[in-house]
């Protein structure tokens, strides 16, 4: 790395002077920078402590176990889908929705017949 400049010696002298000019950094700047570092450390300590506080409640703990809001949304969708399937299945097979005769009476005689055979 060459710092000299044969074509422009005065330029090199200016660079050298400028390097000397800013060879020292104001103490107040160093203090401000260090204060920022302290503030960042403290902010990080607070943000690390906060999740621990949230975990102490039952509801947040349950929510976390269920995978947060996303998990709960999925759980609700699955629950409603199950409920719908259940109701649709009952209505279709047993005609509970229609209020007329169902397949249940037809099944019953067979069941009794089987019992009779066993006897």
């Amino acid at each position: 790395m060459s710092m000299t400049d044969r074509d422009h010696p005065e330029l090199e002298d200016l660079f050298a002077t400028a390097r000397t000019d800013c060879a020292w950094t104001p103490d107040r700047l160093m203090a401000r920078v260090m204060a920022d570092a302290e503030a960042v450390l403290q902010a990080r300590a607070v943000s690390v402590a906060r999740p621990g506080a949230m975990r102490s409640g039952v509801l947040p703990q349950l929510m976390q176990a269920l995978g947060g809001w996303g998990g709960i949304g999925g759980l609700l969708t699955a629950s409603f889908a199950g409920l719908w399937l259940g109701l649709a299945g009952v209505a279709g097979d047993f005609g509970l929705g229609s209020g007329t005769s169902s397949t249940a009476p037809d099944l019953a005689p067979d069941a009794y017949a089987m019992l009779a055979v066993e006897e």
Binding site: A18, R19, D21, C22, A23, W24, T25, P26, L29, M30, V33, M34, A37, E38, L41, R44, A45
Partner: peptide, 27 residues
Amino acid sequence: LFGLGDREAARILTARLTPRAFRVALR
């Protein structure tokens, strides 16, 4: 180390790096 909470590391980095940023910004 500073990322892990070490203040001494911050102090050394401050002394080492602040003058560089200051010099460049000054010019």
